[in-house]
């Protein structure tokens, strides 16, 4: 289990990144932590990965205290930090091999693990090419290969797909999905689609506090509404109570609503020949509901 109890982090400049955060989740599969920029995702990741000291509170990973049991914990964890880059003057093989030496492997075992990891990531043909000549997606894969090659079974992966094209991103998702079978992956991202597709558990962090935690289905239940209706017509006015309304900057309307109201409203919209789309509530809808706050609540006939 990963447990945080009243975990807080206040930086020297007074900024409070984590505010008495409580969290409890199983250390299996992929846990995605989502939040706006500056929500505290990287701070939480760095504290759990034993890089940063908390100001107060406790955090445990599989019973090990992240402050007191550092030596034991560091045998079991590995991190791919936010904005990490493959060292340019190394080749992929040298990158993975040197990291394994840092983890304390001997030459023979490290070399065996390098070959397996690079093959696993599909980059073995580039193993002797300097990192600086590889594409952005390839460089990211090399970094994933470094932590994959290690014996750590708890991986912290901080915004691994930022700046990648959709194909490279999808490639990395495949890798992470494969990895989750025998690793616990603590993934931070601000791509909601990424969290939705990959995560077994999702946490929504805002201003240093967890606003929502659970599976996608559990989070859907948290916002009460199961469907999202998007009305494309600008400045459309609802004439009945249907749920929670979020109005986009372009004037379009999104309505989070229950199954019965979704049925009723969609029938009416069809009858009135108003264009709309209807989908199950997405993580994005939930995120906006919890973080951004709806503009209009429980709209009534105007």
């Amino acid at each position: 289990m990963l447990v945080c109890k009243g975990l807080s982090k206040k930086y020297e400049d007074g900024h409070v990144a984590l505010d008495k955060l409580n969290l409890s989740l199983p250390t299996k599969g992929i846990f995605a932590l989502i939040g706006k920029n500056g929500a505290g995702k990287t701070t939480l990741t760095r504290i759990l990965a034993t890089e940063l000291m908390p100001t107060s509170g406790k955090a445990y990973i599989d019973g090990m205290d992240v402050v007191k049991d550092v030596a034991k914990l560091r045998d079991k964890i590995a991190i791919l930090p936010q904005e990490s880059r493959a060292v340019q003057w190394l080749t992929p093989k040298q990158t993975v091999y040197s990291y394994l030496l840092y983890r304390g492997f001997g030459h023979k075992e490290a070399m065996e693990r390098v070959d397996i990891a690079l093959k696993e990531l599909g980059v073995e043909n580039y193993k002797d090419t300097l990192n600086r000549f590889l594409s952005g997606g390839m460089k990211r894969k090399i970094l994933v290969a470094t932590i994959l090659a290690s014996d750590a079974n708890i991986l912290f992966v901080d915004e691994p797909t930022t700046g990648l094209d959709p194909i490279s991103r999808a490639d990395l998702w495949k890798v992470l999905n494969k990895l989750k079978k025998d690793h616990f992956i603590f993934l931070t991202t601000h791509y909601l689609e990424e969290a939705e597709k990959l995560a077994d558990m999702i946490g929504i962090l805002d201003e240093g506090k967890i606003l929502g935690l659970g599976t996608l289905e559990e989070l859907r239940n948290k916002v009460k509404y199961q469907y999202s209706i998007r009305v494309l017509q600008k400045n459309f006015v609802l004439k009945s109570k249907v749920g929670t309304v979020i109005r986009g900057v372009d004037g379009s309307m999104q309505i989070l609503t229950s199954a019965e109201d979704a049925d009723r409203l969609s029938s009416k919209l069809i009858k009135d020949r108003i264009k709309f789309s209807i989908n199950p509530t997405s993580l994005e809808d939930i995120f906006y509901y919890l973080v951004k706050k709806p503009i209009e609540e429980d709209t009534y006939e105007s």
């Binding site: 890089e51 590995a78 930090p81 936010q82 990291y99 840092y102 304390g104 290690s150």
Partner: peptide, 22 residues
Amino acid sequence: HLKNDFKLQDMVVSSPTSAFMY
């Protein structure tokens, strides 16, 4: 350079390598 531009030191801190060895 290794710490700020490549984040290598962050990766090493969260590994069994101690500050002294690094």
